[in-house]
Computed example of a mutant assay.
Amino acid sequence: MGNFFDDLYQKVFKSSEKIPLNHKENFELKELDNEVAVTWSKSTEGIEVLEKIYKSYAFKKLQLNESPQVHILDSKYAKGFAVTYEEPLTPKTFSMLFLAFAQRVLALGYKQVSLDRKLEEINEQVRSTEKFYFKPPLQIPEENALISQLYGNVAIEKITLNNQPSYLKILATFYSDRLYEDPKPFDEFLDGLFEKR
């Protein structure tokens, strides 16, 4: 009789299926991390890496691949790009780029809404996504005036697989609401993102 109840207990309370990891949390950066990213983006190494990615983006628009490889994201309501982790990127420059891009979006007049980290298990790999999310500053428009959305809402993601860098993604999504002005040109956003400072 004991085996019957033991088997029943095992079936009801202890599933043999492993529950995949899925966790999301908000977090904050230390002020020092932001300062280090700003200093790095002004350094010779930072300038060279940013120029290399901007060049790769320009080549990709001409349907030519350059290293690191850039993927252009373009739809009716969103524009952006992703940078694959490969030479000449290193784990350090990969992380610095993530933070430097965030600082540059803030310099374009945006407000940071959130910074979160999501861990999920996909095909026996742990995928970590750190994501900044920015919105244009809130404003009360003048009567009969449209609200400026700048370049749209901006998300910056850093993706790693099993603690190994995979890619960075920057995406601007636009409001299609008639209360908003059309977004400013995405090329202008890119100029601000890659500008030498």
Rank of each mutant, 00 (worst) to 15 (best):
L8V: 14
G152K: 00
N65V: 10
E143Y: 11
V154D: 01
W40T: 15
S128F: 00
K92W: 01
W40Y: 12
F174K: 09
E121Y: 05
P68Y: 03
F174M: 07
E195T: 11
E48Y: 06
K118E: 15
L115C: 07
L29F: 14
Q125V: 01
Y151F: 13
E87Y: 07
L138K: 12
W40Q: 15
G46M: 12
I170T: 14
L50E: 11
F189W: 00
Q103G: 08
E17M: 09
P183W: 00
E31Q: 15
S166L: 13
N34E: 13
D187I: 00
K196G: 04
L168W: 04
L89Q: 14
P141K: 01
L50H: 12
I122N: 05
A37E: 06
L73V: 03
F194M: 04
A145E: 12
M1E: 13
F101I: 10
F194L: 05
T129W: 02
I122Y: 08
V38A: 13
L115A: 07
L73M: 10
G109N: 03
Y133L: 11
K169E: 12
E121A: 07
V38E: 15
K135P: 02
F189P: 01
L97R: 04
K158Y: 05
L190K: 02
F13M: 07
Y167F: 13
E120T: 11
N163F: 01
N123V: 06
D33W: 03
L21Y: 11
P136A: 05
N153M: 09
V49S: 11
N163P: 01
L179F: 07
K158W: 02
L8A: 13
I53W: 08
L21K: 09
K118T: 15
T44D: 14
P88T: 08
N163W: 00
T90I: 13
I19P: 03
A78L: 01
F98Y: 14
G80W: 00
F194E: 04
K135E: 11
V38W: 02
G2D: 08
L119H: 09
S128T: 15
D182A: 08
K169T: 06
Q112P: 05
K158G: 10
Y180Q: 04
F101D: 09
V113E: 06
F101E: 08
E45W: 07
K118Y: 05
V105T: 11
Q10M: 11
S114F: 01
H71R: 11
L97Y: 05
E51A: 12
K135S: 09
F4E: 15
G152R: 00
Q139Y: 03
E124V: 02
L64D: 10
K79Y: 00
S43V: 07
R117P: 01
E143D: 08
E124C: 04
I140D: 03
S114L: 07
Y57N: 08
S75D: 01
K55W: 11
